[in-house]
Computed example of a mutant assay.
Amino acid sequence: MDTGKTREASHAGSWYTESEEELNAELDDYLSKAEKTLPEGRLKGIIGPHAGFSYSGPTAAWAYKNIDPTNYKRVILLGPSHHVYLDGCALTLCSTYETPIGNIAIDTDTVKALRDTGEFEDFSLKQDETEHSLEMHLPYIKKIFGDHPFSLVPIVVGSINYKSEQKYGKLLSEYVEDDETLFIISSDFCHWGRNFDYMPYEKDVDESISGYIKHLDTQGMDIIEEQDGKKFVNYLKETENTICGRHPITVFLEAIKHSSLKTVTKFVKYAQSGEIHSKYDSSVSYASSYTVVDI
């Protein structure tokens, strides 16, 4: 199997700038305006959005601000598949991921160990470069880690049921317990509007549609903070909230549950791409959180 491929930064120049100087400056600006909110304890994971940086970059900074790269040698990045149907999870065939500010080495040993379980599919180079949910985190990861040595384990999570989410969570729980491994979960929150075929609105909750969207997302974020995967799945069934990273989030919650660690999850930033004034408008929500080992 050829695993020596390089994944190009295929969304650079469209979803974010392809200029090294401009990208560094943009990320510096976002990070300078974010606050470090991490309490005492070791950071185990973050959730952050994956839209174009002009939309979601400021929110993502609130999660990345909490990372001390010297604590980690491995990053496991979980993101949803937007273009390829997967009834499971998939692993990259690449050994390097490019970003405009420097390349990231793939942890090919861990990828092989996961592949050898027989529970993962392969993501072709074309599929890999088409998917944006992982790529939109790569510049931030490289920015934070800089020259500190680390390697990346990218995992694309398909449209799996709760039983499979439990299975993959249990499989990844040993990495949750590893002090030198950091989890990064890629997800946007509510996608509201005709373009997304999702337009619920309960006027008795809030007078504005944007307020209702926040109310809906907050319900989900509160459950994630409880770290209850089954309750989160039930919430999604009841509300049909269009959280695109629902499956990566639940896999992470299940990995925490199957580990021996006691952790605390807290959301630190929430935003929407725009104010909703009529049924013809659309909006995507962004949220950032941290999960820390409770001491």
Rank of each mutant, 00 (worst) to 15 (best):
F189G: 04
I184E: 04
L31V: 13
E35F: 14
S32A: 15
V293F: 06
G102A: 04
K44A: 05
G220E: 01
T130D: 09
K73D: 14
Y85H: 12
E174S: 10
G41H: 11
S285D: 00
A25W: 12
D294Y: 08
S259E: 04
S32R: 15
K237P: 01
P139R: 01
L114S: 03
H191E: 06
L172A: 01
E225I: 06
S186T: 09
D281A: 12
E177T: 03
C94K: 11
K231D: 05
P80Q: 13
L134Q: 10
V233P: 03
D122V: 07
E202K: 15
E98Y: 02
L125Q: 12
I47Y: 07
E26Q: 15
F53N: 04
D294L: 11
K203N: 14
T59Y: 02
I243A: 06
I249C: 12
S124N: 07
T70K: 14
T96G: 02
C190M: 12
D228F: 06
H148F: 09
M199R: 14
D222P: 02
Y290T: 13
E40I: 14
I47L: 15
L114M: 07
P200W: 03
P80N: 12
E131R: 07
Y55Q: 10
H137N: 04
L125D: 04
L77N: 05
R246W: 11
E225L: 07
G45C: 06
D206W: 00
S289N: 05
I160E: 00
V251L: 13
E180A: 12
L86Q: 06
S289K: 03
A271L: 02
L78G: 10
D222E: 14
D217C: 02
R74C: 08
Y280S: 11
K203V: 10
F183L: 08
M1L: 07
I46K: 09
Y175N: 01
D116L: 03
K167V: 03
F183R: 05
S133K: 06
T181E: 01
Q127N: 06
